[in-house]
């Protein structure tokens, strides 16, 4: 006979669900049968490099900022959200289908481009990507999430975590990575994020919406240069949408941010990748 604190049991169950999700990912339906899926579960202090990366990049990326706030909140609370990290190298096609979806006439052309450009990444992922293998990878991520949902636990497939994980050396041989944080047992945290309440002020939130959806506040456009009703007395000192490249200050700010990101990356990558060398011994 034993007595187990329900909260403790629930935390353990969240970790177990991460393992079941990994199993579900490998069981996902495949269009190609050629996906080499890699998965890893990252918990507790092993998430710190990812959180550090988020912190370095958060000033230029709101989505990274939101996810940083969420991961950090639960890490500091001592209830780290286990992350199921999924990855794959999608930059080779063995299919020979020559379907053209990737933009090349043949798989051979695609492979030749991939060989030349491999390692070249965009803001989040590497390319080029075989679209059919990509759908298989996404299916694996979806099965992982669906498996967690069937356990009545919350999760969210996040490209941000995948990108941050890549930045500090997780799953080094992959061209795409998705992080799925799981749990905690409790109310919604990945949508309507109550833990982020104080992260952004009301005024900042309002400005964000006006900035991204100006048409909602657009005045009569007959002049072809309509003002945007940015304030209560919008007719005084009218404000307009302008098209211009980022200012020197903004560009410097971004470059400084990238510099911080590089430093975080250099700090953590050797330590994170050492784990793979140890594991493979």
């Amino acid at each position: 006979m034993a007595r187990i604190d329900g909260r403790v049991a629930a935390r353990e169950a969240v970790l177990e669900s991460a393992k079941l999700a990994a199993a579900a990912a490998y069981r996902a339906p495949m269009l190609t049968g050629k996906l080499n899926l890699k998965t890893e579960i990252i918990t507790d202090e092993d998430q710190d490099p990812i959180i550090d990366f988020f912190e370095a990049v958060k000033s230029i990326s709101p989505v990274m900022f939101f996810d940083y706030e969420t991961l950090k909140y639960f890490r500091e609370k001592g209830e780290t959200l286990p992350i199921l990290l999924l990855g794959a190298d999608l930059t080779r096609s063995e299919l020979g289908w020559d379907c053209g979806a990737c933009g090349f006439e043949t798989c051979a052309d695609f492979n030749a481009y991939a060989k030349e450009k491999k390692g070249g990444t965009g803001l989040m992922w590497g390319g080029p990507t075989c679209n059919w293998k990509l759908m298989d990878f996404s299916a694996a991520c979806d099965f992982a999430c669906a498996s967690i949902a069937q356990c009545r636990l919350d999760c969210r497939a996040m490209g941000t975590i995948g990108a941050a994980a890549a930045g500090v050396g997780f799953l080094p041989d992959c061209s795409i990575r998705i992080g799925v944080p799981i749990g905690p047992p409790g109310d919604f945290i990945y949508f309507s994020r109550s833990q982020n309440l104080n992260a952004i002020s009301y005024e900042e939130q309002r400005e964000g919406i006006v900035r991204t959806s100006p048409t909602n506040w657009q005045a009569f456009p007959g002049s072809t240069k309509p003002c945007i009703k940015t304030k209560q007395d919008w007719w005084n000192n009218m404000e307009y949408v302008k098209f211009e490249p980022p200012s020197t200050e903004e560009q410097t700010f971004t470059l400084e941010c990238f510099d911080r990101v590089m430093k975080v990356s250099q700090k953590h990558t050797p330590h994170v990748t050492a784990w793979y060398n140890e594991k493979d011994k």
Binding site: Y113, K117, G120, T121, G122, L123, M124, G127
Partner: peptide, 14 residues
């Protein structure tokens, strides 16, 4: 989003 998945470092230009 310039993610780079389709063509790598060219981002959405690809």
């Amino acid at each position: 989003a310039m993610c780079g998945l389709c063509g790598g470092e060219k981002g959405c230009a690809f």
